[in-house]
Write a protein that binds this DNA or RNA. Structure first.
Lengths: 210, 210
DNA sequence: ATAATTCTGTTGCCATAGCAACCGATTTTG
DNA sequence: CAAAATCGGTTGCTATGGCAACAGAATTAT
């Protein structure tokens, strides 16, 4: 239970209050094997959840059967929380890319919810909304090189420090709306041009962006 | 005051309750001339608002000074409501593309907010979130023709019926992440191919999409 | 009414990046 | 451990669509 106190949803709440909300929200921990689908695009859901461990991806499938990665979720992040208060169906399919543990919540009765919890919820929604806007910003950059650079710069914690991205090349290409081979090619070029260095999913930006 | 009862934020609330919340939320109607900036990208804001009349656009400016249209808002829609509960700065600049009337709200004290109001708020947020996902879906379609078609199909209310888009060509191109002339060219071709017909910002989809 | 500005369509040029195909490296599975 | 599958890089081909420039239409301003 102690791990719950670290969750953003319960930030600033006493263990007792958390305990109570866990009952109200019908919290339920489950194990989710790699490859499982937690939420399916186009379907309504009344539950949301928090990823306790593992790695999720939000994906869309286009009419040609192509898979497009929209989001990645790492431990501690929440999902579906916007959905449950709206009449809209899920915009993405949520898939476990590794084995996961998930805390399911809901259905949620707003009138019985702690006001601090709602505040936390809105905060979380704000962050997610922001992340979507980031993705849109990347999308709208025409030049692949600039797009890659924009993304990597945002991931960089401090200048010149190596950092990792939550994708393999395929996922990264998909997230950045690019072809995998085109991404590989451009990364090679950027390495050649001394802009960055990388190995697998670890990157390091070297000098000024051009 | 009566126009307030039609707003999604106050849905299902009594005139008296609305009146009260208007005080709590410090509602304030203002006129906003065309071209004004309501929220500036990168800045924090403590107020949100509802567009009573006119037309707004959410825009991002990329590093090359290019303008990218992210959203359009028409009368009745809310803006900034996600922002005020999060510590993130505004992801877009909100600009009045026509003269507008705006109802400003905030700062908001969650603990004094009507629970129905919060429910409405979450609902509105859900819709906006969904709209963003739509835009992302369009972005991730590589073929310009298919991208246009996806967008127009979503706007079409019923088959074969004409409908309008809330953009001029420039805005539409920007929203669809395309070059204006490329969009014009592709629209011409699609008209030639009998896929659609249009005049200015009114469109009509004719036969099956290919 | 006339001028000025904005909007839309058109066209030529051509670089970017998508696609396919291949290969070696790495990881997973049995 | 071997076999299979996934992953990442490379390369050639080429269509798409970005860019620039122009012109006529439409809208707005004076």
């Amino acid at each position: 239970m102690t791990e719950l106190t670290n969750l953003a949803l319960f930030a600033g709440m006493s263990p007792a209050a958390i305990e109570e909300q866990m009952t109200v929200l019908r919290g339920q921990k489950t194990s989710v094997p790699k490859g499982s689908v937690l939420i399916r695009e186009g379907e309504r859901t009344e539950r949301c959840g928090i990823l306790l461990s593992g790695h999720l991806q939000g994906q869309q499938i286009d009419e040609d059967g192509g898979l497009s990665v929209i989001t990645t979720l790492s431990a501690g992040m929440m999902f579906g929380e916007i959905l449950i208060f709206s009449d809209r169906p899920a915009p993405v399919t949520l898939t476990a890319v590794t084995d996961c543990r998930v805390l399911w919540l809901g259905p949620v009765d707003l009138s019985r919810a702690d006001s601090r919890l709602i505040q936390n919820l809105l905060n979380i929604i704000g962050k997610e909304y922001w992340a979507l806007h980031q993705k849109i910003r990347y999308c709208s950059i025409v030049s692949l090189r600039k797009r890659i650079l924009a993304y990597l710069s945002d991931r960089e914690k401090s200048p010149n420090e190596p950092f990792s991205v939550p994708f393999d090349r395929n996922g990264m290409a998909s997230y950045l709306n690019a072809d995998r081979s085109a991404l590989s090619r451009e990364l090679s070029r950027m390495k050649r041009d001394g802009i960055l260095d990388y190995h697998k999913n670890r990157f390091r930006l070297t000098e000024k962006k051009l």
